[in-house]
Computed example of a mutant assay.
Amino acid sequence: MLDASLSPLRLALVAEDPLARGALSRVLGDQGSELQLLASGTQVELETTRGEAPDVVLWDTGLRLADTETRVDAPDLGAPVLALVADDTAGELALGAGAKGLLFRDVSPGPLTAALYAVARGLAVFDPGLSELRASTKTAASISTATQGPDTLTPREREVLALLAEGLSNKAIADRLGISEHTAKFHVNAVLAKLGVQRRTEAVVRAARMGLVTL
């Protein structure tokens, strides 16, 4: 386990934008002996020129991660990844790509350093503004490790199921519950998985048969 009093945290910084990379390098450098920046560059550069293995990877996803049309993968440098994201859409993509923690790109140096240490120790770190994504991630993890079934539906998922029975779209569900559309999609997918169906209409029919909703 890392001990900040004994040795600095060895860090690799991945950012496609050179301006963002330079700004983050300065911020990290200002943390003194707490952090040791081993390497800084684009994802391709660092993955093709491997050096000393870092303890953690800081991945700035930029402003337009959600606009990409290709598969997104977190940097593969042999260490857990903390992603800096512009919004919850980018956060969803970064989580799906393999990031272990999420912070907004405007995070201040103190919380950023603390989060880097936490992720390096194997902990999950989420900005409070991304709490819905965090909850959805926990739900997805529980689906993969626990027995699925309607009894495992969370209160939020039961709300989503009731709105599915009303025929609402993900956007309408998000508006009704005051969450993002992407978080609503997470909850809908969790409901489908726990009911063992592939389509929304099948979920409603099965839920009605189980007495979970009234049509």
Rank of each mutant, 00 (worst) to 15 (best):
L195M: 02
R158I: 02
D17C: 12
A207Y: 15
R176F: 07
P128E: 15
T70H: 13
A203V: 05
L6P: 08
G211A: 05
E52Y: 02
A53H: 00
D67E: 13
L82N: 08
S7E: 13
T70R: 14
A203N: 08
E47Y: 06
A94R: 14
G110P: 00
P155T: 14
L133H: 00
V197M: 06
T183W: 10
R21Y: 04
A208P: 05
R206V: 09
R121H: 10
E159S: 09
R26I: 09
G78S: 03
D76L: 11
R50E: 07
E16K: 00
N170P: 10
G196S: 11
V188T: 13
A162G: 11
D60R: 10
A66R: 07
A190M: 06
A146R: 10
P111N: 05
D127P: 06
V56C: 08
P75H: 02
Q31W: 03
A86H: 06
E47Q: 14
W59G: 05
E52D: 08
L82V: 13
K185E: 04
S131C: 01
D3E: 14
L116T: 03
L112Q: 05
S131M: 03
R105C: 07
L168P: 04
A53R: 03
T49K: 12
L13K: 01
L133R: 01
A15P: 03
D106L: 15
E47V: 04
D3M: 15
G91Q: 04
L93V: 11
A79M: 13
T147K: 14
L192Q: 06
T145N: 11
A162M: 13
A86Q: 05
A141T: 09
E16V: 00
L46E: 06
K100D: 11
G96H: 00
T113V: 14
L24R: 01
L65I: 09
R50G: 05
A53N: 01
L58Y: 09
L163G: 00
R206A: 09
S180V: 07
V85L: 04
D30H: 07
T49L: 12
S40H: 05
T147E: 15
E202A: 15
F126K: 01
V119P: 13
R209N: 13
S142I: 01
L9K: 00
A4L: 14
A83D: 10
D76Y: 08
I179W: 13
I143A: 01
G22V: 02
L6K: 00
A172P: 02
L38Y: 10
G196D: 11
L46D: 06
A193F: 12
L153G: 08
L123A: 02
G51Q: 01
D175C: 01
A74L: 04
V213G: 09
S5T: 12
P80V: 13
E181I: 13
S7A: 15
A184L: 04
A23K: 00
E69Y: 00
L9Y: 07
V205Y: 05
E52C: 00
T145F: 05
L195R: 07
D60A: 09
D87H: 10
F126C: 02
V72I: 15
R50M: 06
L161W: 15
P150T: 03
A172C: 02
V119G: 12
D73C: 11
A90P: 07
L58P: 08
M210H: 13
V81T: 14
